[in-house]
Design a protein around this nucleic acid. Structure first.
Lengths: 195, 195
DNA sequence: ACCTGAACACCGTTCAAGT
DNA sequence: ACCTGAACACCGTTCAAGT
């Protein structure tokens, strides 16, 4: 009772997120339980309910941080080619696939289940980076299809690559990043562009 | 005891598969339990274990039937254009997306979790149809990238379209099948082809 | 957005026992 | 690839009670 008790450590919210990602990395999303997360955080099974309304809310919070990180990664990638939107688009695709491959646990939460995330602000912001690059292409008269179609097509392609990889399908792997660009992203996305 | 007792009805295996798909369609894969499937089939919770080693095995069996159906659908699609592999490829892509959109419960099982299915014979057979069409394109000197790269790229694109749609993202929907072909599949897959 | 302990309903799985 | 009933461990969630 005297002095700085750690009884309320005040950061359980974040601790639960961190600990959950570790557990999901180790046992997969299926094998993840709120009970083990609570135990790993050193609190009772009921404690998480002070910070998240339920298990789905915890996973939703994790997904939102994931989309924030993804958005940052995509923005950095796009900014690497401020005056060449075609290169920026390829960089974006590589970054998307790379993010998912580098953070499979986080990605599994982001991409799991019903409307988990792209509907969140962070999810929309991440997509917005792609939309901006495509808008630049459209402004330059280089889009051969409507902008929103281009967005969905691009997103689908990189999402499919990432998801099949995560699911154990050896699509194009980390070491093959240049191959991914040259043999997949460049030819397919080129098809969407006017020369 | 006399005559045709239905006590052992002998088809519990199939009944469980059917009933499970109904339940998954209604409550999603998350909300699906072996216990409710057993109840819906009119047997005790332990009965399914005579037919499937565990819940994962039941879902695996469902996934395999799904891949068999998908393979059939893809074969039919490809056969619609026996002498035009480019058209066959587009038809294949449409069929893949259409299958997932038409059977979301089945697709959610097929595409869930760890190595559920493409490793199965049925899964490989389904992919084989795509491989055959691409091999015809290669033989005609029309592939601009290696065959296995083309396979993974094509699969990724249609899988991404399907998966984002299932996840609630309005990609290109049922009514937009011609749009899907003209504005997504044709331009992007064209990029993979030599003219 | 405080944490614990106890409780409840539900689920996956096993096992002895019954046809 | 027989089915049931009972049991166990585990999990999500709630709630009264404690700091």
């Amino acid at each position: 009772m005297a002095g700085g008790s750690t009884y309320h450590h005040g950061s359980l919210h974040q601790v639960l997120i961190d600990v959950s990602l570790d557990l999901i990395a180790e046992h997969g999303l299926e094998g993840f339980s709120l009970a083990t997360a609570a135990k790993a955080a050193g609190v009772s099974v009921a404690a998480p309910y002070r910070h998240f309304t339920n298990k789905a809310a915890l996973l939703g919070a994790i997904a939102r941080t994931g989309y924030a990180q993804l958005g940052e990664a995509l923005r950095e990638a796009a900014d690497r080619h401020p005056d060449d939107p075609v290169e920026a688009l390829l960089e974006l695709g590589s970054a998307y696939v790379g993010f998912v491959i580098d953070q499979p646990a986080l990605a599994s939460v982001m991409f799991s289940v019903r409307g988990r995330a792209p509907e969140s602000d962070a999810g929309l912001a991440a997509l917005g980076v792609l939309g901006d690059v495509l808008a630049r292409l459209e402004a330059a008269g280089r889009l051969a299809v409507p902008l929103d179609t281009a967005l969905r097509a691009t997103w689908s392609l990189v999402h499919g690559l990432a998801v099949l990889h995560t699911g154990g399908m050896r699509t194009i792997s980390e070491e093959d990043a240049p191959l991914l660009r040259k043999q997949v992203l460049r030819p397919l996305l080129d098809g969407m562009l006017r020369r």
